[in-house]
Design a protein around this nucleic acid. Structure first.
Length: 582
DNA sequence: ACACCTTTGAAGACA
DNA sequence: TGTCTTCAAAGGTGT
């Protein structure tokens, strides 16, 4: 990731981005994790699909739409996918995208001007903010989705549908690749089969000029050709928009909303006339708003966003005069973790039966730490671009503008906070949020601040300074096992109430309300100290988690120990604490 | 209806 | 400068 910083004049504060350090052992552990987890995950996914078929029609259609219907199809699909994956690799090697900084992002996002900035995924497909260009022929299952696109599937009408993905050869970012096939209109040629884009004026397919790929970002020129579009990250995977817009569309009350030529050309160049319907609210290209804009009226009102684009077209929006008075809510640009979270949420949801975002986020946080530095760097870079784009769109915007927009987030003064508690900082609480019955992964110990890295992600990559910390435990294969096994004796099995001592001591009683009903084993381990929330382990505690080496860069000795330790735990698939061993 | 929960990171506020 | 707070996403849960 040489372009991460490169002194490229990033004036957006990207230089202070931190990347959690992961030692080398984690890489191979991750590989092992993926390999070992894939089988289990596939099984679980299958079961999840079966469940979902009975549970939710939307989920059903989503799942069936993306998954092979039969075993024969599945096998064929697997083979085909492998084949194309290989082809993809060759293609990448061939330099189709030269020196891909983001080998996992072989897609282009197509903004959809129809209704690009609705706030949630409960929208029709046309409301998608960006469509994704996929690698040619890579997206085999997508064709299935494509053929079904004629009938609006609930899959893109709801963002709550877990999207099952195959774990094989799945880059952490691939959800973005596979999710939006059905957003190509039925009559549209399979745009994703070709990297070419359509001229917005003529509609003639043409090959995108490299300069068009990312004219937003003058910096990191090396990434321009490889990163499809920074705005692609504004397009969540489940038909959800990263930002919202007022139902009446944007009227760019702020001069900042007027995009400069390069921006508009970039956006417009992404559009296929087949895919873009006339803007229902006379949205000019130069008026393309950043989806961060959210009308205060609808910001907290998902239902209000569910107005279909057609409705927008039909009924005249709210008198613009009124909205001019209101200052639209410009959301903060997403940070790296948020980008990661948006992307991986569906996958985690699909892998687990968890639905609660709090629990999912714990898993995501853990996975975030288990990411390799390179992988994290991608998100840091994209977050940086996100911020830059945001700043370009809204030069005068400040995060302070959003202060107070939310109603009282946290209880500032927790009456029960104990002085000796490591949760002195009131921000976070040590709560084992994951229901023990459904736990598919234990939350990560939060040691982000502990993993202080050099000033830039790239620097972080070059000179890891973070401790080995709990990554050995973090990199445990994601297991969805729900039945206790013999391995259980490896960890500090405690009665379910044992967590009470931990959570009660480190968290407010109120905060544990959601998890109190399902007590899970929570064992605090060595904490970062700088991070407020105490890590809760619900797995066998790796000795490295407690080892002093976690507080310092691993020495070769420690690395060797870690490796052996990793091997040990790799041979033992993560046993989840599903119920107290009693 | 709305806040909470949970995660990390960015940015602002404040001492 | 360092610490703390707020917000960004998400969606189930609780009030």
């Amino acid at each position: 990731m040489p372009q991460l910083n490169g002194g490229g004049g990033d004036d957006l504060g990207a230089n202070d981005e931190m990347i959690s350090f992961k030692d080398e052992g984690e890489q191979e552990e991750k590989i092992s994790e993926n390999v070992s987890a894939e089988r289990d995950l596939d099984d679980v996914k299958s079961s999840l699909v079966n469940e979902s078929e009975n549970n939710s029609s939307s989920s059903d259609s989503e799942q069936t739409e993306r998954r092979p219907q039969t075993r024969a199809e599945s096998e064929s699909y697997e083979k085909t996918r492998d084949y194309f994956s290989e082809a993809l690799r060759r293609q990448q090697d061939g330099g189709f995208f030269k020196s891909p900084h983001y080998p996992g992002y072989p897609f282009l996002m197509i903004p959809d001007l129809t209704n690009p900035y609705l706030s949630n995924g409960s929208l029709s497909p046309s409301a998608r903010t960006y469509l994704q260009m996929k690698w040619p022929l890579l997206d085999v299952p997508g064709s299935a989705g494509l053929k079904d696109s004629r009938s609006p599937t609930p899959g893109h009408l709801s963002n709550k549908v877990p999207v099952v993905q195959h774990a094989h050869h799945v880059h952490p970012l691939t959800p973005l690749i596979t999710y939006s096939n059905d957003h190509f209109s039925p009559g549209t040629p399979p745009s994703h089969l070709s990297p070419e884009i359509l001229d917005p004026k003529t509609g003639i397919p043409r090959t995108p000029h490299p300069s068009e790929l990312s004219p937003y970002y003058p910096l990191s020129p090396g990434a321009v050709g490889s990163i499809a579009h920074p705005l692609s990250w504004l397009m969540p995977q489940q038909g959800q928009h990263m930002y919202s817009i007022p139902p009446g569309g944007f009227r760019h009350p702020y001069p900042a909303l007027a995009m400069n030529a390069s921006m508009s050309s970039l956006v417009s160049s992404r559009f296929s006339p087949h895919m873009v319907t006339p803007p229902p609210h006379s949205l000019h290209q130069t008026g393309i708003p950043h989806p961060a804009i959210v009308s205060p009226a609808i910001k907290q009102e998902p239902s209000g966003d569910n107005i279909s684009p057609s409705m927008h077209a039909r009924k005249s929006p709210v008198p613009p005069k009124k909205e001019e008075d209101k200052k639209p809510h410009i959301k903060k640009p997403l940070n790296a973790f948020m980008l990661y979270m948006k992307e991986m949420r569906a996958k985690v949801v699909a892998e687990c039966t968890l639905k609660e975002s709090a629990a999912i986020n714990q898993i995501l946080g853990r996975r975030w730490h288990s990411l390799s530095r390179e992988e994290q760097a991608k998100y840091y870079e994209l977050a940086r671009k996100e911020r830059q784009l945001h700043s370009q769109l809204y030069p005068g915007w400040s995060a302070r503008d959003n202060y107070g927009k939310r109603k009282k987030r946290k209880r500032e003064n927790k009456p029960d906070s104990k002085p000796e508690d490591f949760s002195i900082r009131s921000k976070k609480q040590c709560v084992q949020y994951l229901p023990s019955e459904k736990m598919c992964d234990s939350p990560a110990s939060s040691h982000g601040s502990m993993l202080d890295s050099p000033a830039t992600p790239s620097a972080a990559l070059a000179s890891p300074a973070a401790p080995a910390a709990t990554h050995s435990e973090q990199a445990q294969p994601l297991s969805l096992t729900t039945k206790p096994e013999g391995r259980m004796h490896h960890h500090f099995s405690l009665p379910g109430k044992a967590s009470g001592s931990t959570s009660s001591s480190s968290s407010s009683s109120s905060s544990s309300s959601s998890s109190s009903s399902q007590p899970s084993i929570a064992i605090p381990i060595g904490t970062s100290g700088s991070q407020s929330n105490a890590p809760i382990l619900t797995r066998p505690i790796p000795f490295t988690s407690l080892h002093p080496s976690m507080l310092s860069p691993p020495s070769p000795f420690h690395q060797a120990a870690l490796h052996s330790h990793h091997a040990l735990f790799q041979s033992q698939p993560l046993s989840l604490v599903t119920k107290p061993t009693e």
